[in-house]
Every structure is written in C-alpha cells, then in structure tokens.
C-alpha cells in the first residue's frame, strides 16, 4: 500500500524522480552563482520561494481543511515581530528567533482558532480579517515595545557558520529554498497522513466527518495552528530579508496576494502553490506596464477563478486519499 502511494506521485518512477530531484537541486544551487541572474532576479526568485511557503501554509487551511483566511498576513506579522524584537532586545541569532516566531504565531493561531472554531464559512473569514487588522493596530500602538510607526530598523541578517546571508551572495535564496523545501515536505507528510485525511473530510463535509468519528473542532484547530506557524516562519524570514518592519509591512494586500496564489494555483494542490506564486509574484515584474493594475488583476483572478475553475489550475485531485488497494478499482475512474 505504501509502495503504491509513493509510485503515483509527481513523477512516475523512482529513478526518474531522483534524477529530476538531483537536476533541480544542482540547478538551484548553481543559479545564483552562475552570473546568469542579476541580484534583482535572485531577489524575485527568493520572493517566489517565500510566497510558495506562505501559500502552502494557507493552502493547508483553505485548500485542505476548507477554512478561508484573509488575515494570514497577521500571522506573518506575529512571526516577523517576534523574530525582529527578539533580535533587538535579546540579540539572539536568527534560527532561534525564527523558531520562536513560529511558536508564537502558532500560539496566536490557537488563540484565534479556539474561540472561532465553531464559526463557519463567511463568519470565520471575516474574523480572520478582523484579526489581521487587530495585529496591525497592536503593532502600531504598543510603541514602547514594537516601535509603533517607527517599526524596527536595520534588522540583522541571518548568519550561518560565520557567513552573513545577503541577496548578493545568494544566501537568502538558498535559505528560502531550504525553508520552502522543509515546509513542502512537512505539508506533504501531513496531507498524506491521518490528519490530512481528517482535514479533507472536514472540508468536504464536516457533518459526515463528525459521523465518521473525526473530532472536527480539534482538527480545525490543529490546521489553524500549523498554518499559522508556517506563516510565522515566513514572516520571520521576510523581516530579516528586507531588514525593516513596520505595522504596514504585513497589511491586507499581503493576505490578498496569498489567497490569490492559493486560488489560482489550486486549492488542495501542493504544486499549485508553487505555480501560483511563480505566476503572481513574477507577473508585475515581467509586465512592468501592468504593475499599476496588479491589484485589479489579483481581484480579477479571484472572480474569474471562482466563476470558471474554482479548484484552481492544478487543484481538484482529491481522490488520492481514497485510492483503494491494488486490484480494487474505484468507480470514479
């Protein structure tokens, strides 16, 4: 059964898969050093990688569990502020502050999920929006601690083994790739576990899931906490990358970009998150004339996808968890 599952993944056979992986890793490691890419392009690739991570986080919540959050930037802000302030007040290295940022975002996610888990649909969505705005207000008004509108400046770059990461030495690019790979692996494992099947059962029919013995509230909360923690990690990466953080860094626009990526790429599709991020982050850069219209285009994407392909470009293959044992044909196919 296990063997069967692994077989039907992105590529068909194992050697092919390993070869592809090796080629991709080599390419990725080579790219920033090759001189083919300007620092500007390395930066965009880093952003694509970051947004892939953020949309994987939202995809877990929205695509797999069916809970739509439009306040995801709030979790990024929690992670980002935790990391930046721990650096500022305690001088701790990035890895420590980022892990704390993740934990903090997870805790805040739990604090939001516990009371709101009985809300459904639109109510929950609006609650997340209110949450995002409240985070912003706290960051703005708690001036003695967060720096208020002054924000946090000159945030230190992460340092590993005595090497400071920059865009120019490709360090941020590698770090973002590693983080995204870890997150991808993590989300992939969750989705293909008992927990993931519970998430999808809740998404498809929470009443039926309850009947089947799934503790809907507990799993919703788990999904929220994991998603928030990943978003917090993204925030912690981002603030050390941009080296500047103020209450407007993670505003509603960021939440909209993340949800647009998930919906365009495909709800419930891991490769979809990558595709969505690549498309939506790069298009304002490629089509410079369109950058003025970028938010109109994000809006159009939401409307048109809902109208014509609500599951997204790569979404909608939710049969995998129900694949039956060898020799037994499921009647859908």
């Amino acid at each position: 059964m296990k063997h069967n599952n692994a077989k039907k993944n992105l590529l068909d056979t194992k050697p092919k898969k390993i070869a592809a992986l090796v080629v991709m890793v080599a390419l990725v490691l080579y790219l920033p050093k090759s001189g083919l890419l300007s620092p500007y392009l390395v930066r965009i690739l880093t952003m694509i990688s970051l947004y892939s991570m953020l949309s994987l986080s939202l995809n877990l919540l929205t695509g797999f569990t069916g809970l739509v959050s439009i306040g995801h930037a709030g979790f990024c802000a929690v992670g980002g502020y935790t990391s930046a302030l721990m650096w500022q007040y305690l001088g701790l290295p990035w890895l420590v502050t980022a892990i704390c940022g993740m934990i903090m975002a997870g805790v805040v996610g739990l604090m939001l999920a516990a009371p709101t888990s009985r809300l459904s649909g639109s109510y929950l969505t609006i609650a997340t929006l209110g949450f995002g705005e409240i985070v912003k207000m706290i960051a703005l008004n708690w001036q003695s601690f967060t720096g208020g509108p002054l924000g946090v400046n000159h945030i230190e770059r992460p340092e590993f083994f005595g090497i400071t990461l920059t865009t120019f030495n490709g360090g941020f690019f590698y770090l973002s790739i590693i983080l995204t790979a870890l997150v991808t692996l993590f989300v992939y494992r969750i989705v293909n576990s008992k927990m993931g099947r519970a998430f999808m059962a809740i998404r498809d029919d929470s009443l039926a899931a309850t009947m089947m013995g799934v503790d809907v509230t507990a799993y919703k909360m788990k999904s929220f906490v994991i998603s928030a923690a990943i978003a917090g990690l993204g925030g912690a990466f981002y603030v050390h990358f941009v080296r500047f953080l103020d209450p407007n860094t993670f505003n509603f626009d960021i939440s909209i970009i993340i949800i647009s990526i998930v919906i365009l790429g495909g709800t419930g599709s891991i490769p979809g998150s990558f595709l969505g991020a690549a498309l939506l982050i790069s298009f304002p850069e490629i089509l410079r004339f369109a950058s003025e219209y970028r938010f109109i285009i994000y809006g159009l994407i939401l409307v048109l996808m809902m109208r014509f392909k609500p599951e997204g470009i790569l979404g909608g293959h939710s049969h995998r968890p129900f694949r039956l044992m060898k020799g037994v044909e499921s009647y859908g196919n």
């Binding site: 909209i256 159009l300 939401l302 809902m306």
Partner: peptide
C-alpha cells in the same frame, strides 16, 4: 471570495 475580488 468573488466579492473580495470585486472589492479589489
């Protein structure tokens, strides 16, 4: 989600 898109 459609109305969020319209709003934008």
């Amino acid at each position: 989600i459609t109305t969020i898109g319209c709003s934008y």
